[in-house]
Amino acid sequence: MRRPSALATFASLTLSALLLTNGPASAHFLQIIPSEDVLPEGGTVLVDMLFTHPFEGGPIMTMERPERLGMLKNGEIIDLLPDIAKNPSGGGEGWTVSRELAEPGASVFFVDPAPYWEPAEGKFIKHYAKVVVDNYASGEGWDAMVGLPVEIRPLTRPTGLWTGNLFSGVVMKGEAPVPFAEIEVEFINDGSIQAPNEAFITQVIMADANGTFSYAMPHAGWWGFAALVTGEASMTAPDGKAVPVEEGGLIWVRAQDSASAQQ
């Protein structure tokens, strides 16, 4: 068999490198997912945290110990950082925490992670993520804001949603909405949904001039909404250079399929 020439081999490797470099980048999402979003009878909720690509199911990155982890309940922030435990998963490392919820009303679980260095993009990533758990299905307190540097204010109650429901929110940075903010949307895929091509993996929408956005969830399961902004301050990369910081305000919402609920 005739061997390919050195020039042909070089060209092939160069083309492969270009495809890898110029191909669509997978979106990073900090997942903060409770065992249930509604506890009709109260009880204990387990909250898992992973830094990964939700639709593709990986890779799972190693998530350093968060800088803050808490629960907002009735206007009070409860520190959960002393209670967390490591949760190795898929070659990476996440975290988990459990909490007994005794009183009715919504609890907003949130995480302020350590910055993650992404060499492929030449930047640090710091996503402030939250999720709402409604105890005793009260329907109260779901719009409470934690006060994170970048945060999504829900305009739709983020619990008790059907597939096809329209979820709406406002992207906030500090006290002000972010006009025309970009929001990436991904679904935690169990492998049952096949994307026709990479354009379908991460949905991208833009907020309006008032920072408001909406999205109809077509499948049952957990959906993440990540509002992305560039941080005002840079950070120092491992090579000593100043690099930008991608800040994200994330909220996770669960949609329930009405057809399965009838069975």
Rank of each mutant, 00 (worst) to 15 (best):
S192P: 06
G75W: 11
V185E: 07
G231V: 09
L69A: 10
V97T: 06
V253M: 07
T230R: 15
V146P: 02
L161H: 00
G160S: 08
K130C: 00
P154Y: 08
L228V: 12
K123D: 01
I205V: 15
M61T: 02
M206R: 13
A120Q: 02
L46M: 13
P179E: 09
I125S: 07
F29T: 04
R99S: 12
E182V: 13
V253D: 06
V146I: 13
Q263G: 14
Q203H: 11
G231Q: 07
V185K: 08
A11K: 11
R3H: 05
S192R: 14
E103G: 01
E175A: 15
L81F: 07
L81W: 00
P119I: 05
A199G: 12
E182G: 07
P82H: 12
A207S: 14
E151T: 02
D83Y: 13
V131T: 14
R68N: 13
F110L: 04
V133G: 03
P244V: 06
D134R: 08
M49Q: 07
L18Q: 13
E56L: 14
D134A: 11
S214I: 00
E41L: 15
A237F: 12
I60Q: 00
L101I: 10
A106T: 03
V132L: 09
T212N: 03
Q263F: 09
K86W: 00
I32P: 06
Q31G: 02
A261Q: 14
G139A: 02
I78M: 10
L166I: 11
G92L: 09
M217G: 01
M206Y: 11
M217Q: 05
H219L: 14
E232Q: 14
E76G: 01
V170K: 11
L7G: 07
E36G: 03
P149N: 07
G57M: 03
E246Y: 01
I251A: 01
M235C: 04
E64L: 04
P218S: 12
V253H: 04
V243L: 05
E186Y: 01
E36T: 03
Q31D: 08
V132K: 06
W162Q: 12
R3T: 06
M71A: 11
T212F: 01
H28M: 11
L72A: 08
D83K: 13
P179I: 03
F213G: 05
A261D: 03
P40Q: 12
I60G: 00
